[in-house]
Amino acid sequence: MRSKVGVVFGLTQPLLYLVLFGPLLSRVGGVQGAGGGNTWRAFVPGILVQLALFGAGFVGFGLIADLRSGVVERLRVTPVSRLALLLGRVLCDTLMLVVQAVLLLAAGVLLGLRAPLWGIVAGLVFVALLALSIASLSYVLAMMTRVEDAFAPLLSTVTLPLMLLSGIILPMSMAPGWLDAVSRFTPFRYVVDAARAAFRGDFSSSAMLEGAAVTVVLVVASVALGTHRFRKENT
């Protein structure tokens, strides 16, 4: 939260996708019909999930700096609960991401996104919970690798396939059978589909339910893993 510059710079990449790539998609989008007439409805949720994936994915770098300066160790000697040590960071990251997501949504509306308000709010909740899980996992990876040189390549190896397989840019419904099957094994796909359903106002769809279930499992698992790691963290 210390750097307001960070909020803005984190936004550049998704904003560029939105402005420079989005309009292309609205030309071809009619054929696929994934957005239910408005391609922005399909595209913006994807970009939001991408924001969560990359924005929250990189928070581990901050932890590596804190590991090195001894801040983490100093906090671990205090009586504060290990869950709080994790959540303090993760919630701060999530809040920052929600602020970015709202700004991105505003840009989307300017470009032509039309979606029911409740759908947008539900989509934001999905993105926030996803960011929370990804931030926790990013901290787990950072604590395992401990140095930027190892963390950075690991991060890109993990995030890029996850991004491509989740159907962020184009819906996975367009994928050939094998690709669709593979993508079913990545949790983010369900979150993207659920956010898209939410933007369509399709609250009772199976995509929505699956997405909600996957998100809850993801949040619980990643926070449990993160807390465990903060408790065990040593060397």
Partner: peptide, 14 residues
């Protein structure tokens, strides 16, 4: 933890 203070070798400040 509540009863001890600890100052690490390299300190612990950001």
């Amino acid at each position: 933890r509540r009863r001890i203070g600890y100052v690490a070798q390299g300190g612990g400040t950001d």
